[in-house]
């Protein structure tokens, strides 16, 4: 493993939160500006990978809302759920719905994409970085 500089170790957590905030920002604005769930997800992966490299995999894992595999699967579930709203209203599956206050199933779907990318790719990164300590 790469030698750990103390500066990086110290700044890993703050950097993670900054990257995560950027990721969420990119995710949320993605419908109107460049960005979206895929790119946001990749940014979040970068943040988690940073922590996993500089500290360790367990720490990175703890900073995520869920472990990688559950995160990825719940992302898919969220996307399916987003589609069910339209289906419940008698429209074809995945027909999106909007409310007056700007909350929409599109956003839910994109969050699903975000979580899937974040979960699945961190799953790989942790598994490959990790020398047999924590399971993804």
């Amino acid at each position: 493993m790469t030698p750990r500089s103390s500066l990086l170790t110290q700044s890993a957590r703050p950097l993670y939160w900054i990257l995560l905030a950027a990721a969420v920002w990119v995710l949320l604005r993605g419908h109107n500006e460049p960005g979206g769930g895929f790119i946001g997800g990749l940014l979040a992966v970068a943040g988690s990978s940073l922590v996993a490299i500089t500290l360790d995999v367990r720490a990175a894992c703890r900073l995520q809302p869920l472990a990688p595999l559950p995160l990825a699967l719940s992302g898919v579930a969220l996307a399916v759920l987003a589609g069910l709203f339209g289906a419940a209203a008698g429209l074809p599956f995945l027909t999106h719905r909007w409310t007056e206050v700007g909350v929409s199933t599109v956003m839910l779907f994109d969050i699903g994409v975000f979580c899937t990318v974040w979960g699945a790719l961190t799953g790989y990164v942790y598994a490959l970085l990790d020398d047999g300590e924590a399971a993804p």
């Binding site: 997800g41 990749l42 790719l121």
Partner: peptide
């Protein structure tokens, strides 16, 4: 993104 997952 899919390509990356498959590469992994």
């Amino acid at each position: 993104v899919i390509g990356f997952a498959l590469l992994c």
